[in-house]
Amino acid sequence: MRKNRAALGVDNAGRQGLARPWKPPGTRRIARLLQSDAKGIAGADGVFIARLRRTAPKLANAADLAVRFARMLRGQSSEPVTDWLAATRSSVLKRLAAGPQREVAGIDNAIALPWSTGPAEGEISRLKTIKRQMYGRAGFELLRQRVLNSV
Rank of each mutant, 00 (worst) to 15 (best):
M1A: 14
R5F: 15
L8H: 04
L8T: 00
G9N: 04
G9H: 05
D11R: 10
N12P: 07
G14Q: 06
Q16E: 09
A19E: 15
P21W: 06
K23N: 14
K23Q: 15
P24K: 01
T27K: 02
R28P: 07
R29S: 07
I30M: 01
L34N: 00
K39R: 12
A42R: 12
G43P: 04
G43M: 07
A44L: 08
V47R: 00
A50H: 01
R51Q: 15
R54K: 07
A60I: 01
A62H: 01
A63H: 05
A63Y: 03
L65P: 03
V67A: 03
R68N: 03
A70K: 11
R71L: 07
R71K: 06
G75C: 07
Q76E: 10
E79P: 04
P80A: 09
T82E: 07
D83M: 08
W84F: 06
L85K: 00
L85M: 07
L85Y: 02
A87F: 02
V92W: 09
V92F: 09
R95Q: 08
R95M: 07
R95I: 04
P100Y: 03
Q101L: 13
E103S: 15
I107S: 01
D108P: 01
N109Y: 05
A110R: 04
A112S: 15
L113F: 12
P114Y: 13
W115Q: 13
P119A: 14
A120I: 10
A120T: 02
S125D: 11
L127F: 10
K128E: 03
T129D: 08
Q133W: 02
G136D: 04
R137E: 15
G139F: 09
F140R: 09
F140P: 01
E141F: 06
L142K: 12
R144D: 07
R144G: 06
Q145P: 02
Q145V: 13
R146L: 04
N149F: 12
N149G: 12
